[in-house]
Amino acid sequence: MYKIVKAEQLSEKNFLMVVEAPWVVRSCQPGQFLIVKIDEQGERIPLTICDYDREAGTVTIVFQTIGASTERMAKLKAGDCFMDVTGPLGRPSDLVEMDPEELKKMNILFVGGGVGAAPVYPQVKWMSEHGFNCEVIIGAKTKELIMLEEEMKKVAVTYIATDDGSYGYHGMIPSLIEYLVNSGKHYDRVVAIGPVIMMKFVCQLTKKLGIPTVVSMNPIMVDGTGMCGACRLMVGGEVKFACVDGPEFDGHLVDFDLAMERQRTYKTEEGRALLRYREGLSYSGKSSGKECGGDK
């Protein structure tokens, strides 16, 4: 059992949790992900590691409610437990392994769209802790969905963009990037994390601008260790597994249209499971939270 130390609702559908996960925290690096499973019946849900505290043995995760398992997850409170947490999975961000001298000369723009701000945060924090230059864009549909603004501002220059103009720059993330570049900003690299459609349009722009761009893919997964192949993507004409070859890839090589198609694979089945959950909490007999047992 893995105890939830903190549970916070960030907005209507976005939630943040701090969870005890000693095996994950032992060696995790920015860019990696973990898998959580609420209880016996729950799905294995891959989530990017948003922060970690090696001394406390805890990791921070942020998720959006999209299906039956995530809706049940949203009901968990501090003191409740996940039945399973495993990781770290995937390869750490390239930045971690880059030559520090090279990195020192660079200015990197991080882009977090929607819940994507969460996985961007540990990378920005890592850059700031090591004295490297970077700036951040947090983008969302509307002001209420902007997350981690305070935290981000503490570690880097931060720009905000909202689609409806309710806060910060009025417009989509790519147009803000273009605006910044046109106003004289120079970026050596862009790291974009968020909805596939956002990453697609960011990459279209940065390709035009000639800025190398890294994206973090979060496709459907089951085991997360390379066994099932559900997370396969086409990158530069080759089949890649996001779980072992990624989750970060060269954004100018990823086939985003295919990635969006593949995300729809279980739409119908997931929709049915969600309906079953919403319409009949009692029918399935599921509790929406686990008491931490005395066995650990």
């Binding site: 095996w23 032992r26 060696s27 399973d84 947490v85 495993t86 990781g87 999975l89």
Partner: peptide
Amino acid sequence: ETNVIIGKSI
């Protein structure tokens, strides 16, 4: 012990 990925967790 479940949920331990050798090569990743340790």
